[in-house]
Amino acid sequence: MTEATMTAAIARSEKEVSERSPLARAFIYAALVAVSFVMLYPLLWMIASSFKPDDEIFTSTSLLPHAFSADAYRRGWNGLSVGFGQMFFNSLVVCILVVIGNLISCSMAAYAFTRLRFRGRGFWFALMLGTLMMPQHAVLIPQYVLFLKLGWVNTIMPLVVPKFLAIDAFFVFLMVQFFRGIPRELDEAAVMDGCGPLRIFLKVILPLSTPVLATAAVFSFIWTWDDFFAPLIYLNDIEKYTAQLGLRTFVDATAQSDWSALFAMSTLTVLPVFILFVLFQRLLIEGIATTGMKR
């Protein structure tokens, strides 16, 4: 028996001693299952209720509708003067443009901060970190006035254009963290191979950064999809509404008289996020974890 295997064996037996008893384990499991159940129940119930008639929503806590009906989706989809299809499309357009804008502008800024040598880099980096903490409310009104003067209010420009200017410092920060992990010798090899900064960025850094780009893309999409405040301020005409605004309008319009339709539309607005979550769960969780760990 080598020393290493012996140490490992000792460590293992020690660990077994320190592990909790089966009873404690069972208790933890039971607690976790209970918490999961309570947390998920409202969501599942919302989905179930979208297939129930209205009277059943207020009389049944069950997840299984007695009388299954998808009619609420039809009523909801056409429940406003402009169909939800249009609003989903609007949301999709905004989200895709925001994703593109964030990926381009934030990766450029992160590349400059991590890889290029220029005067004032540390100063700008410190300012960028400062904006991470700054609440948007401080700049809200002048931004609104600016977009108003530019004639951009009631268009998607205010929702999209700032993202092409790396306004989401969080993503710059996320990418800075990732770029720092790419060995500098690769840049130098590329320099020896005759690459300038642009070619290094496009041919070396970006291809190696697909994980962080994907993370940023998915988070950008989800946060933009869920965003309510900016569309509320900037979009006035119902045919320009995003899905979130549409849903809010639907709450007012139905005056809560058609809950199943409301839940049907709620379910639909959550669905894209849910799908992205299922597809990219790992990326999202790792993205959150890394930003939390390495500040």
């Binding site: 450029m108 800024a109 400059a112 290029l116 040598r117 220029f118 005067r119 880099r121 092409f164 900064p197």
Partner: peptide, 8 residues
């Protein structure tokens, strides 16, 4: 290059 990439 630095300011170019940082421009946005």
């Amino acid at each position: 290059a630095g300011y170019g990439f940082l421009a946005p």
